[in-house]
């Protein structure tokens, strides 16, 4: 059963320098309880995609396409209906926990707030639930810790508090936006393991540029480049048999695979290259790559790639 279906989504921001085409013709499909990793380098539009699903972008953003969630197109919901979806149905764990927690509110209050917004519980019950949520994310002596302010928490604990906030209303889908960003390796592994454990019964869109963390958690991985998905397959398939030259380059830039960077820089989202977006940095580029834009091709069951190297064979 499809839980989330993103169809032909485009997100453009008008700015003074020009139209920023942050997300272009993105299609995504997620089943209930599926963990999908959305991978790409900084500035490729992954966060925008997540924010767009939550409908948290600025009102002047141009959004086209459809986002189906449990049979409803989120882009057509009123703001009031959308508020009921946020937190209760789909929760987002934002990046930068240090700044995503309000400095003047106790951590427990901020988690209790999520519960009270949706479930109308009284303060004391909501507080008790908040403490339980903190226990669930393995914060020691949660009772006392809940009374503390965010600056008294370490980075890893702040991240866990954010996860607790996201889980507080038991949403069906979690969008985690780089939850491991800025954490040291040991803490990162703890957070990843915790996340894996607490979302076992839920679906999760895991936005990251950390392939290791994605491999640990995700069932499938979608690779994003310059605002579009270039390859999508099961996690093991992506690692064993990466097809798109960008995916290969991305994997080869990992420390344990040779630390070879991809030449060039990722293109500006205002002035996107014609043809294949990756052709300027691609070793295998041919004439057709400069002129035409490839469609997504299913190379084998469940493995999609957007590249002419494979399109021609099947066509």
């Amino acid at each position: 059963m499809t839980l989330l279906g993103v169809r032909n989504l485009r997100v453009h921001f008008p700015t003074e320098e020009g139209l920023v085409k942050a997300v272009n013709t993105v299609d995504l499909e997620m089943k209930g309880r599926e963990k999908l990793g959305l991978i790409g380098e900084t500035g490729c539009g992954k966060t925008v995609l997540g924010m767009c699903i939550m409908r948290l972008l600025q009102p002047n953003t141009e959004v086209a396409g459809e986002i189906w969630y449990k049979g409803r197109d989120l882009l057509r919901l009123s703001e009031g209906e959308m508020r009921k979806v946020r937190g209760r149905e789909i929760a987002m764990i934002l990046q930068n926990p240090a700044t995503s927690l309000n400095p003047v509110l106790r951590v427990g209050e901020q988690i209790a707030e999520a519960i009270r917004l949706h479930q109308g519980l009284d303060k004391r019950t909501a507080w008790a639930r908040a403490v339980e949520e903190l226990e669930a994310v393995k914060i020691a002596s949660a009772e006392e810790r809940a009374k503390e302010y965010p600056h008294q928490f370490s980075g890893g604990m702040q991240e866990r508090a954010m996860i607790a906030m996201g889980l507080a209303c038991d949403p069906a889908l979690i969008i985690a936006d780089e939850p491991t960003k800025g954490l040291d390796v040991k803490i990162k592994m703890q957070v990843v393991r915790l996340l894996k454990e607490v979302v076992r019964e839920k679906a999760m869109l895991f936005i990251t540029h950390d392939l290791g963390a994605a491999a640990e958690i995700c069932d499938r991985i979608a690779v994003m480049y310059a605002g579009e998905i270039v390859e999508c397959a099961e996690t093991s398939e992506i690692f064993r048999n990466p097809l798109h030259p960008y995916t290969q380059g991305f994997l080869n830039s990992l420390p344990n695979r040779g630390l070879k960077p991809i030449p060039g820089v990722s293109p500006s989202l205002i002035d996107i290259p014609s043809g294949c977006r990756f052709h300027q940095r691609c070793d295998c580029a041919t004439e057709i790559c400069e002129e035409e834009h490839s469609e997504m091709v299913e190379v084998k069951e469940g493995h999609f790639v957007r590249c002419f190297l494979f399109g021609e064979k099947d066509a």
Partner: peptide
Amino acid sequence: NYYVEAARALGASDFYVVTQH
């Protein structure tokens, strides 16, 4: 600030975000 966005992501209304955050 991100915590304003975080509150919205939890389904808070404008009034709630302004008065509480």
